[in-house]
Computed example of a mutant assay.
Amino acid sequence: MRRYLQADHQAIAANSRQTPGAWILAAMYDGRMTGQSVARMIRNGTMGAYRPVGAFDAYEAMHDGGSSVWVRYVAGLDVVPMPDTVTVRVPDYGTQRGYEGVCIRTVDISSRCRRCGGPRGPIRSHTFVKDGTRLVCDAWENDCGHQDTYAFVLAEARVLAERVQSRRPKSPKTPLIRGVEGGRYAAAVDLIAELFREKPTLRALAVLPHIEAHGHMDAVQVIRYFVSDSPTGTYTSARAAALHLIELDEEACRAAEAEQTEWQDGPIGCGREATHTTGDNQ
């Protein structure tokens, strides 16, 4: 916080006005939260030096010494917002022992210098020859003077890719619901499963118009009774309704299998055969 209080923002804003559209290092702070707060106050004009609102753009980035704030004067300019990442082509010479080849990898890296947080220089194509093959990669020079190396860029790209992967939502562990093959309500179950897969919080009553539109009136009636008897009432989920239909179809299948089970003959005198008599014995 001490560095923040000592920053001469009047001078910083005046300097930025002299070079419109160019990013300049405004200040450095010990903590990232302070830097992020200052960048936000510059953008929304909370600080009087950066008014009117929208006249300045700013961002916070990591710095070797902690946190840095970069600012540019944009009033009246048609500037492109600075992206968080840029896509570049870099040569990969490999790390294994005795590796002599090279391949071009397309990776995403930060748009800011990893040393001071300043914007990375404009990207241009660079052609070079390796083992008689002409290859094309990207090259750039940072205005801040800190030089990147391809090995460093590849390592940065791997870290960034791992962070992006870790933030992706995990696949739901809930098993897929399918109608019982040949079941009376199989088609209705599959329709419900498709609906709540897109909206997991869908309620049972909300799927009735869709089921009815497909002609599954028997399933509609069953779900209405199921909801009215459910402790959760109108809050009963579509998933619960689908499971109920599946349960009914499975019970019907078990009952049909029991009826089709053939009676196995056994020794005379067992079971109902023991009560049978013939006319000769009367």
Rank of each mutant, 00 (worst) to 15 (best):
H210R: 15
Y4W: 12
R272M: 11
V53R: 15
S230M: 11
A274Q: 13
K199Q: 14
S125F: 08
T275M: 00
G179Y: 04
P122H: 09
R51G: 08
R2C: 05
V90E: 11
S228Q: 15
D190T: 05
V220S: 13
G45W: 12
N44V: 10
Y73I: 05
P20L: 12
G182F: 06
A187H: 04
T236M: 11
A7I: 01
A27S: 10
G76K: 12
H63S: 12
G215Y: 03
L205A: 09
P169D: 00
D108N: 11
W23V: 06
A49T: 01
D249H: 02
T149P: 01
C144F: 04
V220M: 12
E273P: 02
V79P: 01
Y99I: 04
G266I: 09
S110Q: 12
I211A: 12
P81N: 06
L202Q: 13
R163V: 14
C116T: 00
D265R: 15
V38W: 00
L135N: 00
L248S: 00
R32Y: 03
G101V: 10
A58D: 01
R40V: 05
Q147S: 10
I12K: 01
G65T: 10
D57R: 11
L25T: 01
C270P: 07
G65W: 05
V136D: 05
P52A: 12
V164T: 13
Y4A: 02
K170N: 07
G117F: 01
V227Q: 07
C137D: 10
L176R: 12
S237W: 03
T236S: 14
A219D: 02
